[in-house]
Amino acid sequence: MAARRGFTLVRVAGIPIRFQYSWFLVTAVIVVIFGPQVSRIFPEIGLGAYAVALGYALLLMVSVLAHELAHALSAKVFGWPSTEIELNLWGGHTQFIAHDATPGKSLAVSLAGPASNLVIAGVGWYLIQTLEPSGVTGLLADVTVLVNFLVGLFNLLPGNPLDGGRLVESVVWQITGDQDRGMLAAGWAGRLVVGLVVGFVMWQVLVAGPNTNMVLVVVATMICFFLWQGAGESIRIARARLQRQR
């Protein structure tokens, strides 16, 4: 089982960072997709374009890792030990043990992740405006800002399994005094988010017609599948717990 889950390469702040094998698949796909695009922008660097595309993938990894470390370190503030950070096909996941959780603490730990990405994006944008980097350096700087902005913004969407789902969960939890009811509401909110994303993609396809960006469609489909599965799992767990309360 451990072999299928991947392996630990490093520890940060004492927390093991586990890489799923699927993460390396994502890296390879990024290099294959973005290598030719970089080559068209900078034809003079030849095969070096694929090294730049690998830089894209590494920047994504750093952005996701910063996000997960923010979760882990904020959990540590509340005395919740983190057992592992995992980087996988869908980004990352932080496992920690929450003692005496409250709606406020749960929300703070969840929002720490997207907040870290938005801070990185803001600082990066400021440095770009100040230093005005050009060439490959400027391209990678722009990618860093864009990736962190999108990761932060996307994770704020209000539905499980995204971090923004904790906002829905915490509000319902605070009102009802029942975390499981909050989880159930966040799961259904997650399915609503999927519906909105599907609607947006379909609208894009209708508008673009034959010029539709199929990479966008494929990525959006994969993301929707992940979100639907995560939202469904939240609903299943919450319903089971609520049944036991009766």
Results as ranks from 00 to 15, higher is better:
50 Y>K: 10
42 F>S: 00
21 Y>K: 09
33 I>K: 09
223 I>Q: 06
110 S>F: 03
84 E>Q: 11
67 H>A: 06
53 A>G: 14
11 R>T: 14
144 T>H: 12
239 R>Q: 15
70 A>S: 14
67 H>R: 01
56 Y>Q: 11
202 M>Q: 05
28 A>D: 15
205 V>F: 06
83 T>V: 11
206 L>G: 07
10 V>S: 12
89 L>A: 13
122 G>P: 05
196 L>R: 04
59 L>G: 02
192 L>K: 04
196 L>A: 11
84 E>V: 14
184 L>Q: 10
58 L>D: 13
154 F>Q: 10
93 H>P: 10
126 Y>H: 14
161 P>E: 07
23 W>I: 02
202 M>W: 04
18 R>F: 06
40 R>P: 06
64 V>L: 03
62 V>R: 07
222 M>Q: 08
102 T>Y: 04
65 L>I: 04
209 G>N: 11
159 G>H: 04
8 T>K: 12
226 F>N: 01
239 R>N: 11
164 G>Y: 02
16 P>A: 11
181 R>L: 15
65 L>S: 01
244 R>Q: 15
150 L>D: 03
226 F>I: 11
223 I>M: 11
142 D>E: 15
192 L>N: 00
162 L>F: 02
144 T>W: 04
60 L>H: 04
169 E>A: 11
185 A>Q: 02
30 I>K: 05
6 G>D: 10
74 S>T: 08
72 A>C: 05
163 D>S: 08
27 T>H: 12
165 G>Y: 02
179 Q>W: 12
25 L>G: 15
70 A>C: 07
197 V>G: 03
163 D>C: 06
107 L>W: 07
237 I>R: 06
189 A>H: 02
